[in-house]
Amino acid sequence: NKFNKELQWATWEIFNLPNLNEEQVKAFIDSLRDDPSQSANLLAEAKKLNDAQA
């Protein structure tokens, strides 16, 4: 299933962003679980936040 692979990839990527704190990671993962179809958008937002906090 396409969404499942995207969800797994986005989850792994978010867990490995070095500049997000635990609460931010949890919030993004919760959002992914709530709406897996938004995984690409949520990953992009997480990466933006990660870069901003570098």
Rank of each mutant, 00 (worst) to 15 (best):
W9N: 08
P18T: 11
N16Y: 04
S37H: 06
S37Y: 06
N4Q: 14
F28K: 00
S39A: 13
L17P: 00
A46W: 02
D34Y: 11
K5D: 15
W12S: 05
K26Q: 07
D30S: 14
N21S: 12
E45F: 12
K2T: 13
L32Q: 01
A52K: 11
F3Q: 10
F3K: 07
E22S: 13
F3A: 13
E13H: 07
K2F: 11
E6T: 05
P36A: 04
E13N: 03
A54L: 10
I29R: 02
N41S: 14
W9D: 07
A44L: 12
N19K: 03
N1M: 02
E23P: 05
E22W: 13
L42I: 15
F28M: 04
S31W: 14
F28A: 02
A40S: 10
S31R: 13
V25L: 05
T11Y: 12
E23L: 10
D35S: 08
Q8N: 06
N4K: 04
A10Q: 03
N16M: 10
K47W: 09
E13V: 15
I14Y: 02
A54Y: 08
R33E: 13
A27I: 10
R33H: 15
P18S: 09
K47Q: 06
R33D: 09
Q8D: 09
P36G: 03
F15R: 14
D34G: 08
L32H: 01
L43M: 06
L32N: 00
I29M: 08
D30W: 11
W9V: 07
F3I: 12
L49G: 00
K48P: 00
D51M: 13
K48G: 05
D35P: 01
K26I: 10
L17G: 00
L7E: 06
R33I: 15
W9Y: 09
I14W: 02
T11P: 02
N4G: 13
A10S: 03
A27K: 11
L42M: 07
A44Q: 10
Q53V: 06
A40P: 07
E23S: 14
A40H: 08
N19F: 10
L7D: 04
K5P: 11
D51Q: 13
N1K: 04
F3L: 12
W9I: 10
A27H: 12
R33F: 15
I14D: 01
I29Q: 03
S31V: 07
L7M: 06
S31A: 15
L20P: 00
K2V: 10
A10F: 15
N41T: 13
E23R: 13
Q53S: 05
K48M: 12
A54P: 06
E13T: 09
K2Y: 12
K2R: 07
Q53P: 04
W12P: 02
E13D: 04
K2Q: 15
E23N: 12
R33Y: 15
K5I: 05
Q38I: 06
E22H: 12
D30T: 14
F15G: 11
F15P: 02
I14L: 07
L43E: 01
K47Y: 15
N16L: 07
K2L: 08
F15K: 14
R33Q: 14
N1E: 12
A27T: 14
A54M: 10
A46M: 02
A52T: 09
A54K: 08
W12K: 06
A44F: 10
N19R: 02
Q53T: 05
P18M: 09
E45Q: 15
L49I: 09
A46K: 00
L43K: 02
D30Q: 14
A46Y: 04
A40F: 13
L20E: 00
L20N: 00
V25D: 00
N4P: 08
K47M: 06
T11L: 15
